[in-house]
Design a protein around this nucleic acid. Sequence first.
DNA 1: AAGCGGAGCAACCGCCGGCGG
DNA 2: ACCGCCGGCGGTTGCTCCGCT
Length: 332
Amino acid sequence: MMRKPADQTIAGKNNKLRKGLWSPEEDEKLMNYMLNNGQGCWSDVARNAGLQRCGKSCRLRWINYLRPDLKRGAFSPQEEELIIHLHSLLGNRWSQIAARLPGRTDNEIKNFWNSTVKKRLKSLSSTASPNTSDSSSEPSKVDVTGGSLYMQEQAITPMYMDPSFSSSSSSSSTSMQAMLMNHIMMDPLPILDHHGFNMYSATTSIYLNNSATPCMPQLGGCCDDLYLDHNQGFFGDVGIEGELHVPPLSSISIDENISRTEKKYTGNTTNYPHSDMSSSGYNSNLNGYNKEGHMVSASGNLWKGEELKVGDWELEELMKDVSNFPSLDFSS
DNA sequence: AAGCGGAGCAACCGCCGGCGG
DNA sequence: ACCGCCGGCGGTTGCTCCGCT
């Protein structure tokens, strides 16, 4: 696959296209071309820059590595918290999460989540509720009309469900774990994505079956709590014991809501102006660039600078989207 | 010092949607 | 309506680094 010797080529149509790691020379070519010409058709970029690469490869290299506004280094605690929070709202929509983190790429965030956060959550959940930790090995099924959904982030799920969790934080808890804990307890939509709601909204009804997996009894309890806490807002009717029924979602798709909102912010295809690219104007505190490298001003509501307090920022907009979701009622 | 395994990360793959012919 | 190209996205892979034994 990748990381093969740099002279590896794509077999087939064009055996001159290179794959694998980028050499410094290739980086320089691409960087120079982008700085001088800006982004155009990526196939043209690859060709005109004298790169034996496919356009997609050039795009990825630029977005994930060469872009001048990229922030390097470890994620700050604020960024970590924001990622966790946004993930609870958006699920694995890495590009949308990245769009709200100046200088970070979706790939970076995805890697961060898949390695660091998942791991910490897993260890945290096993520490907190050993009885349920094994549920991560097998997806919990959520029966859906016309099919089945597999619950996401199994390692996380038990934490939401285990009532003893909050009091069982062990000495092994890291600051991030505390952050996660805090987030989990405070999140107004604690299980939104982990139950596949906003991510798989093309369902008409969802049934949660207690007997599906070892963790399901707790899930039932969790949902009951939610049902009570949100005054019928979240899941709608709770059916017979251990089974939840969600009213039809066909009227509005939250996916559509989110993507509509997202398009407002990232839908433009403005090219990098060279003057901006080469200037020192990559101040993400004032203006950000979205994932494609398109400039997004603070007034564009994408982000408003790092002085923003995590939690306040952008949440209102997100909640607006979420609140459009049938069965979600946060006004009560 | 060597071997091993896990973590982190770069980059590819496959799919999807938009768009133009 | 169909097709091909392109960009974008999420999932996955496998290489490199590093710590441990």
